[in-house]
Design a binder for these strands. Structure first.
Lengths: 348, 348
DNA sequence: TTGAAAGCGCTAACAG
DNA sequence: CTGTTAGCGCTTTCAA
């Protein structure tokens, strides 16, 4: 009967306090689990608050306290599964400890200065997880200067002091390459991204190193440039297939490029993995859905999201983050696009 | 020289007012473009605010005013491009009129009641765009009761009074079917989603109607059930291909299912569009990236996002929304997966 | 253990 | 046109 009716406006702490016959402060303390309240009073306050359906007003608390129990995520793009997975991990981790997560997306079109955005986020969130688009170095300066807890995702280079959650690209790519080599492949193509330093460069490096370690010459012709997109992977793979001596296996810098390669290979009338083995990187959800399902290197995306939140919460709570750079392990996921190299039977 | 140094804490209205030698109210009025300030004073205040790098504190304004100039989006899932596109449109539209957009994601795992979520959103946002997962009817009740401006995305059924932005599924599917029929196809398969009322059902209905209109019997065998996923589309298409008389064209309930079908068709050794035509629905970005690129029915996703924001802003500003349901047109996008039916030459 | 006062940053309402 | 007062809902600080 005492349910707050819509239209009465939200129930405030004052309502609860009055109803419980105590001061606002006592009610506040009781509800926040602070000490200095008798067990009996606390029980009563909590009971009434529950009954009334009371919820703290985060705007008010933020204003008074500086704390909202909200963490913000700055994301460049919401149309890719990579980021989606990270957000799942981050969201779950946040909500588990009674924080909320809100996502702010960057768009080229919206003319917002870094400053404006960060100030806004700072005004309602207690901390920020930043996933920057490649080449958004202009943001780094602002983030570095921002006076709030921040964790970056897979960042390196300038401002390396910014706490970062990354995964081990080099190691992952190494394991992928060894897998191909164990399957008997020696002529292995690599589909790159744009020629920039970063995660993709690590993967390329591992490709080259593993080949070298196995006494296989790195043939520049086998390195074909794409751009992380399916279309880019398609074109890059097609160039590889057009070679006089095409590769018997292709390692794509990421899953989307691998899907493009899959298209290109099928289009050339070849079969995966019978004629050509293919391996991706990331293990986005779609990787398990293609036909055949994609062998790939799993980045622990959900875990990375969780880890980012936990690192951020540590910062928020004033705990010194031991390492400014957490590197999580990758894992080879063997599915249907890699197989033992078959002996060429066809007469070329 | 007068740049606010980080660490001094953010510049507040009081700072600006003091510096300009006016009261806070005058400063507030000047900065908010309210009347009652001389042009000269206003200029001066604005100048100083700019120089100091002043930004309103949204938490404070929300508390005082009830308005934050933030709109919230409730999204079930961030790993699909469909929602990503809607968010692009919404974000752009919001930022164009100096609003900000924040996204809150639902996760099954996080035990948050509808009430909790809506209350939170209400506390910092001026309005809400709700994209509900299928079957989240429990949320509807809460949304309906919530005392805040709300716009739904492609909702119908109960609580039809909730303002909704939708697109014309029936019409889109009709155009798609006519396209196939004009290409000479008569035996056309349909890949459904789960058997529920809603957008997918409209598309199926159009499929059936167009066939009937052209005097083609609707063969139940040609309707194969999937689940909106690539894997589901794959399996559903495979069943169609295994028929004694397989279809010469397939219409998939959405693009993801179409991609699965594409895999299945290729896997069966058939070629698209040479042997089988294929058409999807949605026109997510990936549709243009597959090989061949997917012919599909475009939902104006970005436009829907924009439209949702504009409808919401109207509500926020107290303008009565004329129609509680805006239905946007769809458009056939002919790409590479549909072609004239070839005369069967193979002897079965 | 409890409460009263003051203030976070802003704006509505009323006064000059 | 400009300023003063009060208050949004909460928590800190200080006093009882």
């Amino acid at each position: 009967m005492d349910k707050p009716r819509i239209g009465d406006g939200p129930v405030t702490l004052a309502h609860v306090a009055e109803r419980a016959g105590v001061s606002q402060m006592t009610a506040s303390r009781a509800l926040n689990g602070r000490s200095g309240v008798s067990a009996k009073t606390r029980r009563e306050v909590v009971r009434i608050a529950t009954q009334l359906g009371y919820r703290v007003n985060v705007a008010a608390r933020k204003l008074s306290n500086g704390r909202s129990r909200i963490i913000a995520v700055l994301a460049p793009d919401l149309t890719n599964q990579f980021i989606g997975q990270v957000l799942i991990g981050a969201g779950e981790a946040a909500r588990k400890v009674d924080y909320e997560m809100l996502v702010y997306t960057l768009f080229d079109e919206s003319r917002r200065s870094h400053d404006e955005v960060l100030r806004l986020l700072q005004q309602f969130a207690d901390g920020l997880i930043a996933i920057l688009p490649r080449g958004a170095n202009d943001y780094l300066q602002a983030l570095y200067a921002a006076n709030m807890p921040i964790v970056m995702l897979d960042h390196r280079g300038e401002f390396a002091a910014l706490p970062t959650i990354a995964s081990n690209h080099y190691e992952g790519a190494t394991v992928a390459m060894r897998h191909l080599i164990e399957l008997g492949h020696a002529r292995i193509g690599f589909l790159t991204g744009p020629d920039e330093p970063g995660a993709a460069a690590d993967r390329l490096l591992a490709y080259q190193h593993v080949l070298a370690q196995h006494g296989i010459r790195v043939d520049p012709q086998l390195i074909s440039q794409g751009d992380f997109t399916q279309r880019g992977g398609f074109e890059a793979a097609r160039r590889l297939l057009a070679l006089k001596r095409p590769p018997s296996a292709i390692f794509a810098v990421n899953d989307m490029a691998a899907f493009g390669a899959l298209d290109a290979i099928k289009d050339a009338g070849l079969s995966v993995p019978h004629d050509i083995s293919l391996i991706g990187f990331d293990d986005i959800p779609m990787a398990a859905q293609s036909h055949p399902p994609l062998t790939t290197v799993r980045q622990p995306l959900v875990w990375m999201g969780r880890s980012a939140v936990n690192t951020l919460l540590a910062q928020i709570n004033g705990i010194d983050v031991a390492s400014p750079r957490v590197v999580l392990p990758t894992e080879l996921v063997v599915r249907g696009t890699t197989a033992t190299m078959r002996v060429r039977e066809r007469v070329s």
